[in-house]
Simulated assay, not measured.
Amino acid sequence: MNTDTLRTDANFAGQIPELYERLLVPMLFAPYATDIAARAAALGPSRVLETAAGTGALTRAMARTLPAHVEIVATDLNQAMLDRAATTPIERAVTWRQANALQLPFDDASFDIVICQFGAMFFPDKPAAFAQARRVLRPGGALLFNVWDRIEDNEFAGTITDALSRLFPADPPLFMKRTPHGYFDRQAISRDLASAGFDATPRFETVTRRSRASSAREVALAYCQGTPLRNEIESRTGASLDEATSVCAEALAARFGTNALDGKIQAHVVAASR
């Protein structure tokens, strides 16, 4: 993947943060946030660092789940996402900070858990990001993160990618397959963690949930305009962003119906001990 593609895939700006929070969080991220926050609580931490926090879906779940004495520090590379996160009420104090997961601005051995929800796929150098997580973990601490499984096991994303491939056959927008659903191989993840210095064998668990939305249009809008897929669509000729969104809505309606959509989503939860 070239540098321009990496930059575009990680560009959550403009209207994306608002649509992401309003549509994608309840559709995709909230169920997994509840799951991974409960896993974090079971480890009994006193200080937790979240990387790639986005608009705060996991941050809010941890605020609800972790005991009041636990300190939560939430970071993201994109200030626009943190700005949106900070506008949503949260039940306790959280430290929000812009930070690059590849260059964490924290002391060695200063957190009990480093946690990341659906962010590892976006790290341009995954072993370097994992090494930074290991550096800031205390001995006995844990890196806990989740990643989407292959696109074939995530039905809305697969349907939209197929529809866009038909609309732009010469240069299909493959953001969803390339990045969100491009880091699912357990052996590759294990190798990256080992390269980062995690000696113990990581633990994997596959978690399947259902993604629900009120309409096909809502799903198409969420994916096409509330993610960096928008950047790929807008860079192409032959169809506008709104036209591409409508084509995707039609494909979703043909497969799942026009209203009350219900599709499979699947992810891996990974835990690595310091």
Rank of each mutant, 00 (worst) to 15 (best):
M121I: 04
S211K: 09
T161L: 05
R39C: 11
T59V: 08
T161N: 11
A120V: 15
N78E: 10
L137D: 08
T227I: 11
I151A: 05
T258R: 15
D185C: 06
E218G: 09
Q132W: 11
R7Y: 01
A10G: 13
I90S: 02
L43A: 11
P169Y: 01
S46I: 04
E218V: 14
A133M: 08
G158M: 08
S211F: 08
A220S: 15
A222V: 03
A101R: 08
A220G: 09
I16P: 05
E232K: 06
A13L: 00
P17N: 04
T201I: 05
T179K: 11
A249N: 08
A129E: 15
F198V: 11
T245H: 13
I151R: 09
L174A: 11
F168Y: 12
L82A: 05
G238V: 05
F122I: 07
F118G: 07
Q266T: 15
S246N: 14
I233S: 03
M121S: 04
A196P: 00
T201Y: 01
R22N: 09
Q225R: 15
A200R: 14
D149P: 09
E21H: 14
A13E: 11
R7G: 00
S273Q: 14
I72Q: 05
D83S: 15
L104I: 05
L174D: 11
T59A: 10
M27H: 07
R186T: 11
A93Q: 13
L49P: 00
T245W: 12
G56Q: 12
A57W: 02
Y183G: 01
